[in-house]
Each structure stands twice: as C-alpha cells, then as structure tokens.
Design a protein around this nucleic acid. Structure first.
Lengths: 112, 112
DNA sequence: CGTCTGTTACGATGAATGTCGTAACAGTCG
DNA sequence: CGACTGTTACGACATTCATCGTAACAGACG
C-alpha cells in the first residue's frame, strides 16, 4: 500500500497551488466529471475514465488538473493512475473540495 | 432595512444555479476580486469597485456573476448596488463560499 | 526481440470570452 | 426643463482554450 516508492508525475507544491487555477480547473464540465469519477473510483487510468471526449482530450484535462494541483498521477507499470489530492487540497483550502463533490445538479436539467 | 420592496435585477432561481457556472464565475481573477470586495463591503456599486478594468468590463463581470447566481443587484435611486448571495449560496452549495473567501494566496507569488 | 496495448506529445482549428470604446438610458440636482 | 453623473448595452477585437487527429513513446507479454 506504499505508493511513495512509485514514480509520480511532476506536480505543484501544496502552497503554490492557486485558488483561481483550481477553480478554473474544476469549472470545466468534463474536468468536473473527471474529478467526481476519481473521487468515486479512488484511482483511475486515462482510458478507464468514462467521459465523452477523446483520449487525447482526457490526457489534456488530466494535465491541467495535475498542473493545477488537483490530481496526482503515479506510474504503475504500463498505466498512469491518477487520483485526487484530497488531503492536500483539504489542507490548502479547507472545506473547498467537499461541497464541490457533494453538489447536486441544478433543478432544471440540461434541456438542450 | 427591508430591501424586499426594492427593484431587483433578474437573477436565477436558487435551485437552478449550476455549480460549474458558479465555479467558472469565481474562477476569473477579476471576478474573484469583485466577490471578495463585495464580501468585505457588503454592498457596492459598479464604480465603487476598485478593480483594474474599465467600467464596462466591471458591468460585464457583474452580469456574469449575477446570471451565475453569485450576486444580486438592487436598484436604489441612481445606483445599482450588488451584493453576494451568501445565504442563497450557502443553502445551495453548503460550505462552498467560505473556503473561497478565506483562501490564502499561493506561497510563490507571480514570479513569471 | 517483436508486437501489442496504453499513454502522451504535438499541431491545427473552431468556439468561447475577457477587454475595450462608444453610445444610450435613467435618475438627480440646480 | 436642462445638464450632469452613474450605469448598462452593443459591437469589435485579441486571446485563450477545448477538442480532435496523428504520431511517438514506454512497458508488458509471448
């Protein structure tokens, strides 16, 4: 269960994480969906994420989330498993992540 | 002290407020600054907001914040006083606003 | 060693948006 | 009533960004 020995993709230091960047990261519908999927699954690879965009786009979003300090990615064999930096975010912006994950959809669903 | 009799600009119903829209609204640096100024001042008009953009842009941002459900604007005489919908947001997304308002700036200031 | 799967990097493109200048509009005051 | 202040609406422009297709790269497996 020790993942500290694994190789991790570069990510910003905790105190360098900017609130606006985090908000902008999770503001995107696809990225918000990714964040929630990661929250539910704990860890997920690029292909296992069920989002309606191409793989290259998923990788792009994961990169933005990682550079924004929202997710961390470790290299396990052939896969890159990404997870939420829940504890880090909780320490940096206490109480921010929970309401985002628990938020209910608006009363008027997408009727387009 | 009852402002209910005042004329209010149209704003989305509480349950129709979308999380992504709110996050996208406050993700912008200028709008985040406006939100914090409103939080500190309680109420403010367009010209009294000290932000480094033109008045028309301030009005644009206020419109986005209002349409996003973040602020409410009432017409008082010649002025349009905007304020945070703190109670509404707290009811819709409990705990979301507080960490945003209290967040500390990143450790490494803009050195780019 | 060769192949396959999974992942990412790169370049291009269309859409969204932050910003501004100007004009129009409403309320106030003399 | 006329002028002034404050506010917003509209159009335009430059930038950013989400998306995609293709190609390159790494590890696993036979």
């Amino acid at each position: 269960m020790r993942e500290a020995q694994d190789t991790w993709l570069p990510q910003p230091d905790l105190e360098e994480v900017d609130l606006g960047t985090v908000l902008q990261a999770v503001a995107d519908p696809v990225r918000l969906q990714i964040v929630r999927l990661l929250d539910a699954a704990g860890e997920a690879s690029c292909t296992s994420l069920d989002v309606p965009v191409k793989r290259s786009t998923v990788s792009h979003h994961l990169k933005i989330l990682r550079e924004g300090g929202v997710v961390a990615t470790r290299l396990v064999g052939n896969a890159r498993l990404s997870r939420l930096r829940r504890d880090d975010l909780e320490d940096r912006f206490p109480g921010l992540l929970a309401p985002i994950l628990l938020a209910r959809p608006p009363a008027r669903p997408r009727t387009d």
